[in-house]
Every structure is written in C-alpha cells, then in structure tokens.
Simulated assay, not measured.
Amino acid sequence: MSSKQVALIIGASRGIGRQVAVDLARDNYAVMLAAKTTSDASKVTPFPPDPNSSQSTVNTVEREILEAGGSAAAVAVDVRDAAQIQHAIEETVRVFGKLDVIIYNSGAIWWSSVEKTPLKRFKLMQQINPEGLYATVQAALPYFEKAGWKGRIVVVSPPIYSRFFRGKTAYAMGKVGMSVLVKGLAMDFQREGRNEMAVTSIWPAVAIESAATEHNKDADDKSYKKDLRKPTIFSDAILAMLRAPHKVVNGLLDTDEDFLREKCGVSDFSKYSVIPGSEPRRIMPAKFPTLEVAEQDDEGQRMDSTKVRAAKI
C-alpha cells in the first residue's frame, strides 16, 4: 500500500487535468491518471509533448511524472461506461492499495442555444458530465466506506447563478447538475456524521489556457492569450482545497481565484497570467448568490424511497 495519499484523476490527459496530475505528484501524491485516449508514450518525440495537443495522453503524463521521480499509473476509461469507471477505481486500489481522493475533470462542451443544440449532442454532454460523475461517486463510495469515510472528492463544476445558463443551456443543465450533486452529497455526508469526508466544486474565475481555449484559434494571432491564465492556478487551488479542513470545503462551490484569495490569503495573481504583465478579464461574477433559505433545516417528514420500496416487498 502506498504511503502517499492516492488520487484518481479522471480527465488527466492534457490541459488542466494534466497540470493537476503533475502538481499533485510533485506534492507527493500517488496519482492514477484516467482518460479515454491512450498512446505509446515511449514513441513520442520530442518529449514531453505540447500539453494542449492530441499527443498528450494519460500515458505521456504518466511518463512525465515517473521521469520526474513521482508515483503514477494510467488507465483507460470512457466515462459513458459505468463498468469502465468501476474498473478504473478498482485498478487504482490494486496498484496503490487505497483511494483517498477523486478529481472529476472529464467534460464535454457544446455552447449554443437550445435551438442549435441537437438532442444527440445534449445526450452526450449529460452522459459525460453529470452521469459520468454520478457513476464515479457511486463506484467510489464503498471504497471510502472501507477506509472509514475519510476522503475527498473534487468536481470541476460551477457555482450556481443565472448568467451561466445564457447561450449554453444544454451544457449548463449538466454542469449545474454536477454542482447540485456536490451540494446534495455534502449534505448526505453531514447528515450521516461522515465528518472526515468532503466533496467540493471548483471552477475557473478567469479563462485558463487549455486544449479548449486553443481550439480554432488563429495560429498567428496570439492576442487572445492576454485574457488567459496558466492552469497552475487551478492545481494550486485544488491542492489548497485538499489541505483545508473538511468543514471548510464540504459542499463548497467556488472558483480557483476566490478560494485562493479568501481562504489562502493570495492577493497577487500576476504569476498566473499567460502573457506577463497582462490582466486577464474575469469571466465569473464578482459575487455569487447564496443558495440557503430560512427554513433550510426544517424538512418536515423526509421520505426515503428505499424504505418505501422495501416496505412494499
């Protein structure tokens, strides 16, 4: 069994996911890298590849970490298949002996109006975004239970606010659904007295350089990079969330910048700018609405469908 904390990162092949994996390994985590695409990393030259290119896979990230002296392994997983997710979790435990952290970074994107979002595209996003996350959580909970309910789950999903729905409703339905899962699962942990478990959501406050931001950009026009940050801000925020007390982060929906500023005292974010000296535009609201209401703890008689069904059998 690994003496290190063990993290399964789903969606770790490039961009933000790769950076999170590399930085967790540098922080003495053993990391299992999971994504759909694999490759023969030994044949990639020059190495390492552009982290935002198709040459970057879980296998090249694994090689990169191992060559730097870290602990890593890789597994193929298509999050549309619950059996593959189950296998990825089992493989993590087989290789490293345990599971302490899950980071769900997989995502499918289609930003357009409802009219211009085909049903096929809508279904794909729901499969990869909320359904993939739900299947991952369901598969992982028994392992957290065996470990005495000690662990962390970090989900890449947004704070909930109305502007997020604009112009990308189908995408927002899935991503906000992921944030609802974070809130609800956190309440489950709290209600059951699982006070050493925490589930947290993180989202970029400013656009981050990644495969998504590089796609379809003019190769000769780099002006858009002035509004981008390096993915290290995301990995720094995730590491800070993992170090924070459970009660601080359980059920939290936050951005990278806001968490680092408010919980870690960071005030200077200039080192994260892709273009030195630039001041990237914030894409998130300055303040998010609170979701709590006055009768938050007054549920009345709460129904449990499992008990209702059991009574009928």
Rank of each mutant, 00 (worst) to 15 (best):
G184V: 10
S305F: 15
S2N: 09
D27E: 11
A286M: 13
S201P: 05
S179W: 04
A140R: 03
E295T: 12
N129D: 13
T306D: 15
P49I: 05
Y161R: 09
A170R: 06
Y272D: 05
M32E: 02
K150P: 01
I275C: 09
A170W: 03
P231A: 07
R194E: 06
T200G: 04
G265D: 13
S179K: 05
K146R: 15
P158C: 03
H87M: 14
T136Y: 03
K263A: 14
G132S: 00
F122C: 08
A83P: 06
K183F: 00
A170H: 08
D221W: 07
N195V: 07
R14W: 02
S54E: 15
R121H: 12
K183S: 12
N195S: 12
A108I: 00
I65F: 08
M197V: 11
V274N: 05
V79G: 12
A83C: 09
K247P: 00
K43W: 00
S201I: 04
Y104E: 03
G132K: 02
P289A: 09
V293Y: 14
G97F: 12
F165G: 08
R94N: 15
E62L: 11
N59G: 11
Y29I: 00
Q296H: 13
K98S: 12
C264I: 03
F96D: 05
K271D: 06
K263M: 13
F189R: 10
K150N: 13
D27P: 00
V79C: 08
V156G: 11
A172G: 01
G69W: 10
K146G: 07
A147Y: 05
W111N: 13
G148R: 07
T60R: 06
V75Q: 10
Y272M: 04
G167I: 06
H246D: 04
N195A: 03
R281M: 11
